[in-house]
C-alpha cells in the first residue's frame, strides 16, 4: 500500500503499514467541475426546471388573458385567434411567431419533464428500501405528490387539450371549425363531463403552480426568510387567478352564459 500525495506526485513507502488491509469500496469522489456541469447537478436540474417553469407560467398568463376574450363575443375571440397567427407580419412570415412560441414551449416542456423525471429517478435510487411506517402528515408532504404525480396528470391533460382545441382531433366540431365554435361545442351542457375533467385538470395545474412558483423562487436563490410569506402569497395568488381565469370559460359555456 502506498500513499499518493496530490500535487507532489511521488509515492512513498508506507512506513505506517496496516495489517490485514480490508479492501473497502472506494468512496465516491465527485468528478472535477467542468463548465456546464453545474446544470447537470441535482441543483442545476432544479434550476432548469424553475426557468422552464417560469416560461410556462408566463405563457399560461398570456393564454388565459386570450381565453377571456371569449366573453367579448364570437367576433373578438375569432379575430384574436386569427391575429395570433399574423403577429410580426410582414416582417415575419405567416404563423412564424406562433411557431417560435410553440417550439419554445415544447422545448420548455421537454426540459421541465426531463428534469422532473431524472430527479424522480435519482430519488428512487437514493432510497432503495422504503419505510414501513409513513407519517400521517408532516410539513409539505403534499408538495411531492402534487408536483410529481400531479405533473403526470397535467401532461395527460395537455395532450388531450391539444388534440381537442388545437388539432381538433377529439373536438365534436373537428379540426376545421372556428375557435369559438370549438369552445362552445366542447363545453356544451350535454358535455358537462368534459367541463368537469377540464376543471379538475386546471385545479391540478393551480396546485402545481402554488408550490411550483414558490419553489422556483427558492431554486433560483431568490427566497429569504423575511420574504417567505410574501412569496407564498404571490404564488398562491397567481395560481388562484389562473385557475379562476381558465375555469371561467368552460363553466360559463356549460351553464349557458356563453353560447
Amino acid at each position: 500500500m502506498s500513499w499518493t500525495y496530490p500535487g507532489i506526485g511521488h509515492n512513498f513507502p508506507d512506513v505506517a503499514s496496516r495489517s490485514n488491509t480490508v479492501t473497502a469500496p472506494r468512496p465516491p469522489r465527485a468528478a472535477a467541475a467542468r463548465p456546464g456541469s453545474v446544470y447537470r447537478s441535482s441543483v442545476g436540474k432544479k434550476a432548469v426546471m424553475a426557468v422552464t417553469g417560469a416560461i410556462l407560467v408566463l405563457y399560461l398568463v398570456a393564454h388565459m388573458v386570450g381565453n377571456l376574450k371569449v366573453f367579448l363575443g364570437r367576433a373578438d375571440f375569432d379575430h384574436y385567434a386569427h391575429w395570433l397567427r399574423t403577429i410580426g407580419e410582414p416582417a415575419l412570415p405567416h404563423r412564424v411567431f406562433l411557431t417560435i412560441v410553440e417550439v419554445v414551449l415544447t422545448v420548455a416542456v421537454i426540459l421541465h419533464m426531463w428534469s422532473a423525471v431524472s430527479l424522480a429517478r435519482r430519488a428512487r435510487r437514493a432510497r432503495p428500501v422504503r419505510y414501513a411506517v409513513r407519517p400521517a402528515a408532516r410539513e409539505h408532504r403534499y408538495a411531492t405528490h402534487v408536483m410529481r404525480y400531479g405533473g403526470v396528470v397535467i401532461l395527460l391533460f395537455v395532450i388531450w387539450h391539444l388534440l381537442d382545441l388545437t388539432f381538433g382531433a377529439v373536438n365534436p366540431r373537428g379540426g376545421g371549425a372556428e375557435p369559438y365554435d370549438k369552445v362552445v361545442a366542447d363545453f356544451a351542457p350535454s358535455h358537462w363531463y368534459v367541463t368537469a375533467f377540464y376543471v379538475i385538470a386546471v385545479i391540478m395545474v393551480g396546485l402545481h403552480l402554488r408550490h411550483g412558483i414558490w419553489s422556483a423562487f427558492q431554486t433560483l436563490g431568490l427566497g429569504r426568510r423575511r420574504r417567505q410569506r410574501g412569496l407564498r402569497l404571490f404564488a398562491g395568488t397567481v395560481a388562484a387567478l389562473l385557475v379562476i381565469g381558465f375555469v371561467s370559460v368552460p363553466v360559463m359555456v356549460t351553464i349557458g352564459v356563453v353560447s
Partner: peptide
C-alpha cells in the same frame, strides 16, 4: 503503534507509526 478493533467487522488491526 497501536492495536485497534474495527468496530464494524470486529477485525483486530495493528497500526505502526513513528
Amino acid at each position: 503503534g497501536i492495536v485497534a478493533r474495527d468496530m464494524v467487522t470486529g477485525e483486530i488491526e495493528t497500526h505502526t507509526a513513528d
